[in-house]
Design a protein around this nucleic acid. Structure first.
Lengths: 224, 224
DNA sequence: ATTGTATATTTTGTATACAAAATAAGGAAT
DNA sequence: ATTCCTTATTTTGTATACAAAATATACAAT
Protein backbone atom coordinates (compact mmCIF):
# COMPACT_ATOMS: atom_id res chain seq x y z
CA UNK A 1 0.00 0.00 0.00
CA UNK A 2 1.30 3.43 -0.91
CA UNK A 3 0.86 5.38 2.26
CA UNK A 4 3.34 8.13 1.71
CA UNK A 5 1.64 9.27 -1.48
CA UNK A 6 -0.10 12.56 -0.89
CA UNK A 7 -3.17 11.72 -2.97
CA UNK A 8 -3.95 8.03 -2.71
CA UNK A 9 -7.71 8.57 -2.81
CA UNK A 10 -7.72 10.77 -5.86
CA UNK A 11 -5.64 8.21 -7.71
CA UNK A 12 -8.32 5.56 -7.55
CA UNK A 13 -11.21 8.00 -7.86
CA UNK A 14 -10.15 8.78 -11.41
CA UNK A 15 -12.03 5.65 -12.49
CA UNK A 16 -14.62 6.83 -14.94
CA UNK A 17 -17.68 7.97 -13.11
CA UNK A 18 -20.88 6.29 -14.04
CA UNK A 19 -24.06 8.34 -14.17
CA UNK A 20 -25.22 6.60 -11.05
CA UNK A 21 -22.20 7.91 -9.15
CA UNK A 22 -22.69 11.45 -10.35
CA UNK A 23 -26.28 11.37 -9.25
CA UNK A 24 -25.31 9.94 -5.88
CA UNK A 25 -22.80 12.74 -5.44
CA UNK A 26 -25.27 15.41 -6.38
CA UNK A 27 -27.93 14.14 -4.02
CA UNK A 28 -25.33 13.79 -1.29
CA UNK A 29 -24.43 17.43 -1.76
CA UNK A 30 -28.05 18.47 -1.72
CA UNK A 31 -28.44 16.72 1.60
CA UNK A 32 -25.22 18.01 3.15
CA UNK A 33 -25.87 21.57 2.08
CA UNK A 34 -29.34 21.39 3.48
CA UNK A 35 -31.26 21.79 0.23
CA UNK A 36 -32.87 18.50 1.03
CA UNK A 37 -33.74 18.79 4.69
CA UNK A 38 -33.82 15.76 6.97
CA UNK A 39 -37.17 14.08 6.91
CA UNK A 40 -38.08 15.37 3.45
CA UNK A 41 -39.61 12.89 1.11
CA UNK A 42 -37.46 12.36 -1.96
CA UNK A 43 -39.76 12.88 -4.89
CA UNK A 44 -38.45 10.76 -7.73
CA UNK A 45 -40.34 12.45 -10.51
CA UNK A 46 -39.23 15.99 -9.74
CA UNK A 47 -35.67 15.11 -8.72
CA UNK A 48 -35.22 12.95 -11.79
CA UNK A 49 -36.42 15.76 -13.97
CA UNK A 50 -34.25 18.29 -12.17
CA UNK A 51 -31.14 16.15 -12.57
CA UNK A 52 -32.01 15.23 -16.12
CA UNK A 53 -31.54 11.50 -15.77
CA UNK A 54 -33.84 8.54 -15.94
CA UNK A 55 -35.12 6.66 -12.96
CA UNK A 56 -32.75 3.73 -13.31
CA UNK A 57 -29.49 5.44 -12.33
CA UNK A 58 -31.39 7.61 -9.90
CA UNK A 59 -32.74 4.67 -7.99
CA UNK A 60 -29.35 3.00 -7.98
CA UNK A 61 -27.96 6.17 -6.46
CA UNK A 62 -30.61 6.02 -3.77
CA UNK A 63 -29.51 2.50 -2.89
CA UNK A 64 -25.96 3.56 -2.27
CA UNK A 65 -27.04 6.58 -0.30
CA UNK A 66 -29.24 4.31 1.76
CA UNK A 67 -26.29 2.02 2.40
CA UNK A 68 -24.31 5.05 3.50
CA UNK A 69 -27.05 5.90 5.93
CA UNK A 70 -28.04 9.24 4.43
CA UNK A 71 -31.38 8.09 3.10
CA UNK A 72 -34.06 5.70 4.23
CA UNK A 73 -35.91 3.62 1.67
CA UNK A 74 -39.28 2.42 2.87
CA UNK A 75 -40.39 -0.28 0.45
CA UNK A 76 -43.30 0.85 -1.72
CA UNK A 77 -43.57 4.04 0.26
CA UNK A 78 -40.81 6.18 -1.08
CA UNK A 79 -37.55 7.43 0.33
CA UNK A 80 -36.82 10.15 2.83
CA UNK A 81 -33.71 11.98 3.85
CA UNK A 82 -32.62 10.37 7.03
CA UNK A 83 -33.32 12.44 10.08
CA UNK A 84 -30.87 12.04 12.88
CA UNK A 85 -32.23 11.86 16.38
CA UNK A 86 -30.18 13.21 19.25
CA UNK A 87 -29.51 9.61 20.13
CA UNK A 88 -28.25 8.87 16.64
CA UNK A 89 -25.86 11.79 16.80
CA UNK A 90 -24.66 10.85 20.24
CA UNK A 91 -24.01 7.28 19.20
CA UNK A 92 -22.04 8.45 16.18
CA UNK A 93 -19.95 10.86 18.20
CA UNK A 94 -19.34 8.30 20.91
CA UNK A 95 -18.15 5.83 18.32
CA UNK A 96 -16.20 8.43 16.38
CA UNK A 97 -14.40 9.58 19.47
CA UNK A 98 -13.13 6.06 20.01
CA UNK A 99 -12.17 5.72 16.40
CA UNK A 100 -10.21 8.94 16.52
CA UNK A 101 -8.57 7.84 19.72
CA UNK A 102 -7.43 4.72 17.93
CA UNK A 103 -6.38 6.68 14.87
CA UNK A 104 -4.38 9.09 17.00
CA UNK A 105 -2.46 6.29 18.66
CA UNK A 106 -1.80 4.53 15.37
CA UNK A 107 -0.57 7.67 13.66
CA UNK A 108 2.03 8.17 16.35
CA UNK A 109 3.19 4.60 15.82
CA UNK A 110 3.07 4.42 12.06
CA UNK A 111 3.43 7.78 10.36
CA UNK A 112 6.79 8.94 9.08
CA UNK A 113 8.43 12.07 10.40
CA UNK A 114 7.62 13.86 7.17
CA UNK A 115 3.98 12.91 7.47
CA UNK A 116 3.78 14.18 11.03
CA UNK A 117 5.45 17.33 9.84
CA UNK A 118 2.75 17.68 7.21
CA UNK A 119 0.05 17.40 9.85
CA UNK A 120 1.71 20.08 11.92
CA UNK A 121 1.85 22.38 8.93
CA UNK A 122 -1.82 21.84 8.40
CA UNK A 123 -2.36 22.73 12.01
CA UNK A 124 -0.42 25.96 11.57
CA UNK A 125 -2.54 26.85 8.57
CA UNK A 126 -5.65 26.28 10.62
CA UNK A 127 -4.33 28.53 13.33
CA UNK A 128 -3.64 31.26 10.82
CA UNK A 129 -7.18 30.96 9.48
CA UNK A 130 -8.54 31.14 12.98
CA UNK A 131 -6.62 34.34 13.70
CA UNK A 132 -7.94 35.87 10.51
CA UNK A 133 -11.42 34.71 11.33
CA UNK A 134 -11.77 32.87 8.01
CA UNK A 135 -14.36 30.40 9.05
CA UNK A 136 -14.88 28.39 5.89
CA UNK A 137 -11.20 27.83 5.07
CA UNK A 138 -10.66 26.81 8.68
CA UNK A 139 -13.49 24.36 8.41
CA UNK A 140 -12.04 22.84 5.23
CA UNK A 141 -8.59 22.54 6.75
CA UNK A 142 -10.06 20.96 9.83
CA UNK A 143 -11.77 18.33 7.72
CA UNK A 144 -8.55 17.76 5.89
CA UNK A 145 -6.63 17.41 9.14
CA UNK A 146 -8.92 14.77 10.56
CA UNK A 147 -9.15 12.81 7.35
CA UNK A 148 -5.37 12.89 7.04
CA UNK A 149 -4.93 11.55 10.55
CA UNK A 150 -7.34 8.85 9.54
CA UNK A 151 -5.22 8.10 6.45
CA UNK A 152 -1.95 8.02 8.28
CA UNK A 153 -3.24 5.53 10.80
CA UNK A 154 -2.63 3.00 8.01
CA UNK A 155 -5.79 1.08 8.64
CA UNK A 156 -8.02 1.20 5.61
CA UNK A 157 -11.11 -0.14 7.37
CA UNK A 158 -10.77 2.45 10.08
CA UNK A 159 -10.43 5.12 7.45
CA UNK A 160 -13.54 3.98 5.62
CA UNK A 161 -15.69 3.85 8.71
CA UNK A 162 -14.53 7.24 9.89
CA UNK A 163 -15.19 8.76 6.49
CA UNK A 164 -18.68 7.34 6.49
CA UNK A 165 -19.55 8.69 9.91
CA UNK A 166 -18.03 12.04 9.08
CA UNK A 167 -20.18 12.22 5.97
CA UNK A 168 -23.30 11.55 7.98
CA UNK A 169 -22.38 14.16 10.53
CA UNK A 170 -21.15 16.76 8.13
CA UNK A 171 -24.13 19.06 8.40
CA UNK A 172 -24.24 18.89 12.14
CA UNK A 173 -20.57 19.55 12.69
CA UNK A 174 -20.73 22.67 10.60
CA UNK A 175 -23.48 23.89 12.85
CA UNK A 176 -21.38 23.11 15.92
CA UNK A 177 -18.54 25.41 14.95
CA UNK A 178 -20.71 28.36 14.12
CA UNK A 179 -20.60 29.98 17.54
CA UNK A 180 -17.36 31.88 18.17
CA UNK A 181 -16.74 30.76 21.74
CA UNK A 182 -16.96 27.14 20.68
CA UNK A 183 -14.52 27.90 17.97
CA UNK A 184 -11.93 29.14 20.43
CA UNK A 185 -12.12 26.01 22.55
CA UNK A 186 -11.97 23.78 19.48
CA UNK A 187 -8.80 25.55 18.48
CA UNK A 188 -7.25 25.09 21.87
CA UNK A 189 -7.97 21.38 21.64
CA UNK A 190 -6.23 21.34 18.32
CA UNK A 191 -3.24 22.98 19.98
CA UNK A 192 -3.07 20.06 22.36
CA UNK A 193 -3.25 17.64 19.45
CA UNK A 194 -0.35 19.35 17.76
CA UNK A 195 1.68 19.18 20.95
CA UNK A 196 0.99 15.47 21.32
CA UNK A 197 1.87 14.90 17.68
CA UNK A 198 5.18 16.67 18.08
CA UNK A 199 6.06 14.32 20.91
CA UNK A 200 4.54 11.34 19.11
CA UNK A 201 2.62 10.71 22.27
CA UNK A 202 -0.11 8.43 20.93
CA UNK A 203 -1.80 8.05 24.26
CA UNK A 204 -2.15 11.80 24.72
CA UNK A 205 -3.16 12.40 21.13
CA UNK A 206 -5.82 9.74 21.37
CA UNK A 207 -7.16 11.25 24.57
CA UNK A 208 -7.40 14.76 23.16
CA UNK A 209 -9.01 13.62 19.94
CA UNK A 210 -11.60 11.64 21.84
CA UNK A 211 -12.21 14.56 24.15
CA UNK A 212 -12.51 16.89 21.18
CA UNK A 213 -15.33 14.78 19.83
CA UNK A 214 -17.17 14.55 23.11
CA UNK A 215 -16.96 18.33 23.37
CA UNK A 216 -18.50 18.51 19.95
CA UNK A 217 -21.42 16.66 21.43
CA UNK A 218 -21.82 19.29 24.11
CA UNK A 219 -21.74 21.96 21.44
CA UNK A 220 -24.37 20.48 19.23
CA UNK A 221 -26.65 18.53 21.51
CA UNK A 222 -29.15 21.31 21.96
CA UNK A 223 -29.43 22.02 18.27
CA UNK A 224 -30.79 18.61 17.40
CA UNK B 1 -35.02 2.84 22.11
CA UNK B 2 -36.25 -0.61 23.05
CA UNK B 3 -33.13 -2.35 24.25
CA UNK B 4 -34.63 -5.00 26.45
CA UNK B 5 -36.61 -6.51 23.61
CA UNK B 6 -35.09 -9.82 22.62
CA UNK B 7 -35.63 -9.34 18.89
CA UNK B 8 -35.36 -5.69 17.98
CA UNK B 9 -33.76 -6.47 14.65
CA UNK B 10 -36.38 -8.89 13.50
CA UNK B 11 -39.05 -6.39 14.40
CA UNK B 12 -37.92 -3.89 11.83
CA UNK B 13 -36.88 -6.51 9.32
CA UNK B 14 -40.51 -7.53 8.94
CA UNK B 15 -40.90 -4.61 6.55
CA UNK B 16 -41.93 -6.14 3.29
CA UNK B 17 -38.89 -7.27 1.42
CA UNK B 18 -38.46 -5.86 -2.01
CA UNK B 19 -37.10 -8.09 -4.73
CA UNK B 20 -33.91 -6.14 -4.64
CA UNK B 21 -33.38 -7.08 -1.00
CA UNK B 22 -34.04 -10.74 -1.60
CA UNK B 23 -31.53 -10.77 -4.43
CA UNK B 24 -28.99 -8.97 -2.25
CA UNK B 25 -29.50 -11.56 0.46
CA UNK B 26 -29.13 -14.45 -1.92
CA UNK B 27 -25.96 -13.13 -3.45
CA UNK B 28 -24.61 -12.37 0.00
CA UNK B 29 -25.21 -15.97 0.97
CA UNK B 30 -23.56 -17.21 -2.19
CA UNK B 31 -20.51 -15.18 -1.29
CA UNK B 32 -20.42 -16.12 2.38
CA UNK B 33 -20.90 -19.80 1.69
CA UNK B 34 -18.17 -19.69 -0.88
CA UNK B 35 -20.24 -20.52 -3.94
CA UNK B 36 -19.03 -17.25 -5.38
CA UNK B 37 -15.34 -17.26 -4.59
CA UNK B 38 -13.45 -14.02 -4.00
CA UNK B 39 -12.17 -12.58 -7.23
CA UNK B 40 -14.83 -14.25 -9.35
CA UNK B 41 -16.44 -12.11 -11.97
CA UNK B 42 -20.15 -11.73 -11.36
CA UNK B 43 -21.79 -12.67 -14.62
CA UNK B 44 -25.05 -10.77 -14.81
CA UNK B 45 -26.64 -12.83 -17.53
CA UNK B 46 -26.19 -16.21 -15.85
CA UNK B 47 -26.83 -15.01 -12.31
CA UNK B 48 -29.93 -13.13 -13.37
CA UNK B 49 -31.23 -16.22 -15.11
CA UNK B 50 -30.36 -18.43 -12.16
CA UNK B 51 -32.17 -16.15 -9.72
CA UNK B 52 -35.07 -15.65 -12.08
CA UNK B 53 -35.18 -11.86 -11.87
CA UNK B 54 -34.56 -9.07 -14.30
CA UNK B 55 -31.42 -7.01 -14.39
CA UNK B 56 -32.92 -3.98 -12.68
CA UNK B 57 -33.30 -5.36 -9.15
CA UNK B 58 -30.18 -7.41 -9.65
CA UNK B 59 -28.05 -4.39 -10.35
CA UNK B 60 -29.58 -2.52 -7.45
CA UNK B 61 -28.60 -5.44 -5.26
CA UNK B 62 -25.05 -5.19 -6.55
CA UNK B 63 -24.96 -1.55 -5.52
CA UNK B 64 -25.86 -2.33 -1.95
CA UNK B 65 -23.42 -5.21 -1.81
CA UNK B 66 -20.76 -2.87 -3.14
CA UNK B 67 -21.59 -0.36 -0.43
CA UNK B 68 -21.28 -3.16 2.11
CA UNK B 69 -17.86 -3.92 0.74
CA UNK B 70 -18.59 -7.44 -0.48
CA UNK B 71 -18.43 -6.64 -4.15
CA UNK B 72 -16.41 -4.33 -6.34
CA UNK B 73 -18.07 -2.64 -9.28
CA UNK B 74 -15.63 -1.52 -11.96
CA UNK B 75 -17.50 0.85 -14.26
CA UNK B 76 -18.16 -0.66 -17.66
CA UNK B 77 -16.07 -3.67 -16.76
CA UNK B 78 -18.33 -5.73 -14.63
CA UNK B 79 -18.35 -6.64 -10.96
CA UNK B 80 -16.24 -9.06 -9.00
CA UNK B 81 -16.53 -10.60 -5.59
CA UNK B 82 -14.20 -8.62 -3.40
CA UNK B 83 -11.06 -10.44 -2.54
CA UNK B 84 -9.61 -9.62 0.84
CA UNK B 85 -5.89 -9.21 1.08
CA UNK B 86 -4.12 -10.16 4.28
CA UNK B 87 -3.82 -6.47 4.93
CA UNK B 88 -7.56 -5.98 4.51
CA UNK B 89 -8.27 -8.71 7.00
CA UNK B 90 -5.74 -7.41 9.46
CA UNK B 91 -7.16 -3.92 9.29
CA UNK B 92 -10.66 -5.25 9.87
CA UNK B 93 -9.61 -7.33 12.84
CA UNK B 94 -7.59 -4.51 14.31
CA UNK B 95 -10.57 -2.23 14.04
CA UNK B 96 -13.00 -4.87 15.22
CA UNK B 97 -10.93 -5.63 18.26
CA UNK B 98 -11.20 -2.00 19.32
CA UNK B 99 -14.89 -1.95 18.61
CA UNK B 100 -15.44 -5.01 20.72
CA UNK B 101 -13.34 -3.53 23.45
CA UNK B 102 -15.60 -0.53 23.44
CA UNK B 103 -18.70 -2.70 23.27
CA UNK B 104 -17.50 -4.78 26.20
CA UNK B 105 -16.99 -1.75 28.38
CA UNK B 106 -20.33 -0.25 27.43
CA UNK B 107 -22.23 -3.44 28.08
CA UNK B 108 -20.90 -3.54 31.61
CA UNK B 109 -22.08 0.02 32.12
CA UNK B 110 -25.41 -0.15 30.39
CA UNK B 111 -26.91 -3.62 30.30
CA UNK B 112 -29.43 -4.70 32.90
CA UNK B 113 -28.77 -7.61 35.22
CA UNK B 114 -31.23 -9.73 33.30
CA UNK B 115 -29.46 -8.96 30.05
CA UNK B 116 -26.10 -9.90 31.49
CA UNK B 117 -27.71 -13.05 32.80
CA UNK B 118 -28.89 -13.80 29.26
CA UNK B 119 -25.38 -13.43 27.93
CA UNK B 120 -24.08 -15.81 30.54
CA UNK B 121 -26.70 -18.37 29.62
CA UNK B 122 -25.64 -18.08 26.03
CA UNK B 123 -22.12 -18.68 27.16
CA UNK B 124 -23.16 -21.82 29.02
CA UNK B 125 -24.89 -23.10 25.92
CA UNK B 126 -21.75 -22.53 23.94
CA UNK B 127 -19.74 -24.44 26.47
CA UNK B 128 -22.15 -27.34 26.28
CA UNK B 129 -21.87 -27.37 22.49
CA UNK B 130 -18.12 -27.32 22.77
CA UNK B 131 -18.10 -30.32 25.08
CA UNK B 132 -20.32 -32.24 22.70
CA UNK B 133 -18.16 -31.20 19.78
CA UNK B 134 -21.11 -29.68 17.91
CA UNK B 135 -19.17 -27.26 15.79
CA UNK B 136 -21.93 -25.60 13.81
CA UNK B 137 -24.28 -24.89 16.71
CA UNK B 138 -21.32 -23.54 18.64
CA UNK B 139 -20.48 -21.28 15.76
CA UNK B 140 -24.03 -19.98 15.57
CA UNK B 141 -24.18 -19.34 19.31
CA UNK B 142 -20.87 -17.58 19.13
CA UNK B 143 -22.17 -15.24 16.44
CA UNK B 144 -25.25 -14.65 18.55
CA UNK B 145 -23.15 -13.91 21.60
CA UNK B 146 -21.05 -11.29 19.90
CA UNK B 147 -23.94 -9.65 18.16
CA UNK B 148 -25.84 -9.51 21.44
CA UNK B 149 -22.95 -7.85 23.20
CA UNK B 150 -22.97 -5.39 20.35
CA UNK B 151 -26.70 -4.80 20.88
CA UNK B 152 -26.47 -4.35 24.60
CA UNK B 153 -23.78 -1.73 24.28
CA UNK B 154 -26.69 0.56 23.40
CA UNK B 155 -24.89 2.34 20.63
CA UNK B 156 -26.64 1.82 17.35
CA UNK B 157 -23.81 3.12 15.20
CA UNK B 158 -21.36 0.82 16.89
CA UNK B 159 -23.73 -2.06 16.32
CA UNK B 160 -24.10 -1.27 12.63
CA UNK B 161 -20.40 -0.98 12.00
CA UNK B 162 -19.65 -4.17 13.85
CA UNK B 163 -22.33 -6.03 11.94
CA UNK B 164 -20.91 -4.83 8.67
CA UNK B 165 -17.38 -5.91 9.47
CA UNK B 166 -18.59 -9.23 10.80
CA UNK B 167 -20.44 -9.80 7.56
CA UNK B 168 -17.33 -9.14 5.54
CA UNK B 169 -15.28 -11.45 7.71
CA UNK B 170 -17.84 -14.18 8.03
CA UNK B 171 -16.18 -16.61 5.66
CA UNK B 172 -12.79 -16.10 7.15
CA UNK B 173 -13.89 -16.49 10.73
CA UNK B 174 -15.55 -19.75 9.91
CA UNK B 175 -12.26 -20.92 8.55
CA UNK B 176 -10.46 -19.79 11.68
CA UNK B 177 -12.45 -22.01 13.99
CA UNK B 178 -12.05 -25.11 11.93
CA UNK B 179 -8.94 -26.43 13.63
CA UNK B 180 -9.63 -28.11 16.99
CA UNK B 181 -6.72 -26.65 18.97
CA UNK B 182 -7.81 -23.15 18.03
CA UNK B 183 -11.25 -24.01 19.17
CA UNK B 184 -10.05 -24.88 22.64
CA UNK B 185 -8.24 -21.59 23.09
CA UNK B 186 -11.19 -19.63 21.75
CA UNK B 187 -13.36 -21.31 24.35
CA UNK B 188 -10.98 -20.45 27.13
CA UNK B 189 -11.08 -16.82 26.04
CA UNK B 190 -14.83 -16.97 26.22
CA UNK B 191 -14.53 -18.28 29.76
CA UNK B 192 -12.63 -15.15 30.65
CA UNK B 193 -15.30 -13.02 29.04
CA UNK B 194 -17.98 -14.69 31.10
CA UNK B 195 -15.97 -14.12 34.26
CA UNK B 196 -15.56 -10.44 33.47
CA UNK B 197 -19.25 -10.14 32.66
CA UNK B 198 -20.20 -11.69 35.99
CA UNK B 199 -18.17 -9.05 37.74
CA UNK B 200 -19.29 -6.34 35.35
CA UNK B 201 -15.67 -5.54 34.88
CA UNK B 202 -15.84 -3.53 31.66
CA UNK B 203 -12.13 -2.96 31.50
CA UNK B 204 -11.35 -6.66 31.72
CA UNK B 205 -14.12 -7.64 29.34
CA UNK B 206 -12.91 -5.13 26.81
CA UNK B 207 -9.38 -6.43 27.08
CA UNK B 208 -10.33 -10.06 26.58
CA UNK B 209 -12.60 -9.31 23.67
CA UNK B 210 -9.89 -7.31 21.96
CA UNK B 211 -7.37 -10.04 22.65
CA UNK B 212 -9.80 -12.64 21.35
CA UNK B 213 -9.92 -10.83 18.04
CA UNK B 214 -6.20 -10.41 17.74
CA UNK B 215 -5.83 -14.13 18.40
CA UNK B 216 -8.24 -14.70 15.57
CA UNK B 217 -5.76 -12.90 13.40
CA UNK B 218 -3.02 -15.30 14.41
CA UNK B 219 -5.32 -18.18 13.63
CA UNK B 220 -6.27 -17.06 10.16
CA UNK B 221 -3.36 -15.06 8.89
CA UNK B 222 -1.71 -17.92 7.07
CA UNK B 223 -4.90 -18.98 5.32
CA UNK B 224 -5.28 -15.74 3.42
C1' DA C 1 4.18 -16.68 -35.92
C1' DT C 2 3.19 -11.82 -34.44
C1' DT C 3 1.29 -7.63 -34.56
C1' DG C 4 -2.14 -4.63 -35.89
C1' DT C 5 -6.59 -3.34 -37.49
C1' DA C 6 -11.32 -3.81 -38.73
C1' DT C 7 -15.60 -6.09 -37.71
C1' DA C 8 -18.70 -8.94 -34.93
C1' DT C 9 -20.31 -10.27 -30.37
C1' DT C 10 -20.97 -9.74 -25.78
C1' DT C 11 -21.53 -7.04 -21.82
C1' DT C 12 -22.68 -3.01 -19.46
C1' DG C 13 -25.28 1.38 -18.85
C1' DT C 14 -29.47 3.99 -19.37
C1' DA C 15 -34.11 4.91 -20.84
C1' DT C 16 -38.64 3.62 -21.41
C1' DA C 17 -42.73 0.73 -20.78
C1' DC C 18 -45.61 -1.91 -18.11
C1' DA C 19 -47.41 -3.93 -13.49
C1' DA C 20 -48.46 -3.53 -8.82
C1' DA C 21 -48.83 -1.09 -5.02
C1' DA C 22 -50.17 2.93 -2.33
C1' DT C 23 -52.43 7.26 -1.91
C1' DA C 24 -55.94 10.56 -3.10
C1' DA C 25 -60.54 11.80 -4.65
C1' DG C 26 -65.23 11.27 -4.95
C1' DG C 27 -69.47 10.06 -3.51
C1' DA C 28 -73.20 7.14 -0.66
C1' DA C 29 -74.82 5.86 3.85
C1' DT C 30 -75.27 6.98 8.47
C1' DA D 1 -70.26 16.44 8.89
C1' DT D 2 -68.13 11.77 9.44
C1' DT D 3 -67.21 7.29 8.12
C1' DC D 4 -66.88 3.88 4.85
C1' DC D 5 -66.33 2.06 0.44
C1' DT D 6 -65.39 2.44 -4.51
C1' DT D 7 -62.88 4.27 -8.18
C1' DA D 8 -59.18 7.43 -10.17
C1' DT D 9 -54.44 9.02 -9.89
C1' DT D 10 -50.02 8.91 -8.51
C1' DT D 11 -46.02 6.59 -7.08
C1' DT D 12 -43.14 2.71 -6.73
C1' DG D 13 -41.23 -1.75 -8.42
C1' DT D 14 -39.79 -4.66 -12.20
C1' DA D 15 -39.08 -6.00 -16.93
C1' DT D 16 -37.75 -5.04 -21.38
C1' DA D 17 -35.60 -2.38 -25.09
C1' DC D 18 -32.16 0.34 -26.89
C1' DA D 19 -27.35 2.66 -26.79
C1' DA D 20 -22.67 2.65 -25.75
C1' DA D 21 -18.77 0.49 -24.25
C1' DA D 22 -15.69 -3.25 -23.95
C1' DT D 23 -14.11 -7.60 -25.46
C1' DA D 24 -13.45 -11.20 -28.68
C1' DT D 25 -12.80 -12.84 -33.42
C1' DA D 26 -11.10 -12.85 -38.05
C1' DC D 27 -8.09 -11.62 -41.22
C1' DA D 28 -4.21 -9.00 -43.50
C1' DA D 29 0.37 -7.33 -43.45
C1' DT D 30 4.87 -7.90 -42.01
Amino acid sequence: MELSSPFPMEAVAIEKQTLHDQVANRIRDLIIEGHLAPGTRIDETTLVEQLGVSRTPFREALRTLAAEGLVIIRPSKGSVVRKLTAQDVFSMLELLSHLEELAGRLVCQRASDAEIEGLLELHDDMLARYREGDRLPYYKLNQEFHSRVSQLASNESLREVQANIQARLKRIRFLGNSKPDYWASAVSEHEQMAAALRKRDGEALGQVMAQHLMNTWDRVKDNI
